[in-house]
């Protein structure tokens, strides 16, 4: 503070915002080509997945979603899935819903790929854990829309900044619950691995990850839910999907379109949540605990 000569303690002005802006500009200038590469790659993948989901007639996809629900969970869930996705199509939200689904799958996928290893690392090292924790606190408490600004600055308008902002926003529960899950694994069982001469990598693979899986899956579920809420907001930076309709419903005070798009988001959310929860129940640890004669 003393380095700024014009600083008046009675009328303070600290340019945190300007520093952040400079930082983002610096990133943009220094890593410009890298950022462009990421942007191009992501949008190619995004387009491909959207094409894949929207190419078949919607009825085929409805049947596929229902079949997946049946396979992973139950026939009741399959009926819900069929009815829900049929309603989305009937509300003329099919394309938007598939775009949103793509955004969620890609960003949640990236968030999981980043957060689970980070969580494992934090569980192994107290130093990493102590550094990561305040960063995660910061990431979770910052209003989500703020993420959109630097993403916009670095990647321009479109689905890519939306996805990347979503990745950052959705990561914390993935990291936290992975760390928690691994730390919660019974120390005696880990000791058993060590006592029989298992190397650390094998203990992680054969003992810690399988035993922590239910908790990690709960984290992944959270990541997906946060992603879903964020990709709707990401419409503000031009990301496609249901969010665009929600946004237009908001700006033009069009209740009908707002409700239809919103309902589409809710159906997607319930479907993904139940699906992931059912996957968590298929974890070997959970299955083994439920076995009865």
């Amino acid at each position: 503070m003393s380095e700024s000569e014009s600083f008046d303690p009675m009328d303070p002005r600290i340019d945190v915002g300007e520093w952040a802006e400079n930082g983002v500009d610096w990133l943009d200038e220094t890593f410009g080509p890298v950022l462009d590469g990421i942007s191009d790659g992501l949008s190619t993948v995004y387009d491909a997945v959207v094409d894949l989901l929207t190419a078949p007639p919607f009825l085929v996809m409805v049947v596929l979603f229902a079949a997946l629900g049946w396979f992973v969970r139950s026939w009741q869930f399959a009926i819900f899935a069929a009815a829900g996705f049929y309603l989305i199509a009937a509300m003329d939200q099919w394309e938007g819903a598939m775009e949103t689904l793509t955004l969620v799958l890609l960003s949640a996928g990236m968030a999981v790929l980043l957060s689970v290893p980070l969580g494992v690392w934090a569980a192994k090292s107290s130093t990493v854990s102590q550094i990561v924790r305040p960063v995660l606190d910061f990431m979770q408490t910052l209003p989500p829309m703020v993420y959109l600004i630097p993403a916009l600055a670095m990647f321009g308008i479109g689905s890519v900044p939306g996805m990347l902002a979503t990745v950052v926003f959705a990561m914390p529960p993935g990291v936290r619950l992975t760390e928690l899950g691994i730390r919660q694994v019974d120390t005696e069982v880990v000791e058993a691995g060590q006592a029989f001469g298992s190397p650390p990598g094998r203990i992680l693979r054969q003992i810690q990850l399988p035993l922590a899986l239910p908790t990690i899956m709960a984290g992944i579920n959270q990541v997906i839910m946060l992603s879903l809420s964020m990709v709707v907001l990401a419409a503000m930076v031009g990301a496609a999907g249901l969010g665009l309709d929600v946004l237009s419903g908001l700006t033009t005070l069009d209740v009908a379109i707002g409700v239809e798009a919103g309902l589409g988001v809710v159906i997607l959310a319930i479907y993904l949540d139940r699906l992931v929860a059912a996957l968590a129940d298929r974890a070997p640890v959970v299955k083994a605990a439920k076995v009865r004669d």
């Binding site: 005696e188 069982v189 000791e191 029989f196 001469g197 003992i207 399988p210 640890v285």
Partner: peptide, 16 residues
């Protein structure tokens, strides 16, 4: 691995 093995108070079995 070769010379020493251990039995634990709370069994420490792999539940899965």
């Amino acid at each position: 691995q070769q010379k020493i093995s251990m039995v634990f108070q709370h069994f420490a079995l792999l539940p899965h």
